[in-house]
Nucleic acid binder design. Structure first.
Lengths: 121, 121
DNA sequence: CTAAAGTTGACACGATCCATGTCAATCTCT
DNA sequence: AGAGATTGACATGGATCGTGTCAACTTTAG
């Protein structure tokens, strides 16, 4: 079977994503992705980074969201990924104070990323 | 004391927000706000709508997010506002199944708005 | 070492988006 | 009826984004 490589140089990555290499360079310059570099200075993309770029591409191409908006949404993705296991935890156990505090923290982070004041008293 | 009116026609609203009336009309056309109308057809803005528009203005002017991105973020605002009281609830009471189900639902909504697959098993 | 192929960063070009501005027609209120 | 505001449609200038080009550098293979 054709094995899938674990790392991709920019032309391979661009081909797989059906994007222009310059677009990938620009995404890095804007801080949307941070591929590793070889000893020289060539970009090396992992599969996870390709997935991340594919999400960016969807938000940009299909939803018409610009890169500033995508950046904000990616920050919210981080919050959502931390939030989910915390919610899961409240299912079984009684909500220990520790878990609840972290839940509150994540919701506060969410409000901040949305430009809202801290959630009211 | 100068009393603050409860409703604003478009020119008053635009003046208070320091925006062009045409901008407000465009925001309505894009579904970002839905002011009521008089019997004729004039737009009537409430204070809440002015607050909402001010948030939009911040995201656009200061953060450089375009209107497609703002729209998505406003949807996430709705989720965050529903999420917060649910988290609060888990502080005192033991987590009833009902509350937990609604928490899961909101997190799932969040994932959807971020273009992610349903949170994994 | 050398040559071909790929990558790097800088710059430029169209297309699109956005706030603003203009204008004639319509609505509101006296 | 008439002055003043609002309506929607269209135009304009600035900014953003994907794409393309180019010379210099890096990588790979002989």
């Amino acid at each position: 079977m054709a094995k899938r490589p674990d790392f991709f140089l920019i032309s391979m990555a661009a081909e797989r994503l059906d994007m222009h290499p310059q677009t990938l360079r620009k995404y890095e310059r804007l801080g949307l992705v941070q591929p590793h570099r070889t000893l020289g200075s060539m970009r090396v993309y992992t599969q996870d980074e390709l997935d991340r770029i594919r999400l960016i591409k969807t938000l940009v191409d299909r939803e018409g969201i610009n890169l500033a908006g995508v950046q904000r949404l990616l920050s919210i993705v981080d919050v959502a990924r931390r939030l989910h296991p915390l919610v899961r935890e409240t299912a079984r156990t009684s909500p220990r104070a520790e878990v609840h505090r972290r839940l509150e923290d994540e919701v506060a982070a969410l409000f901040r990323l949305l430009g809202l004041d801290e959630p009211g008293e």
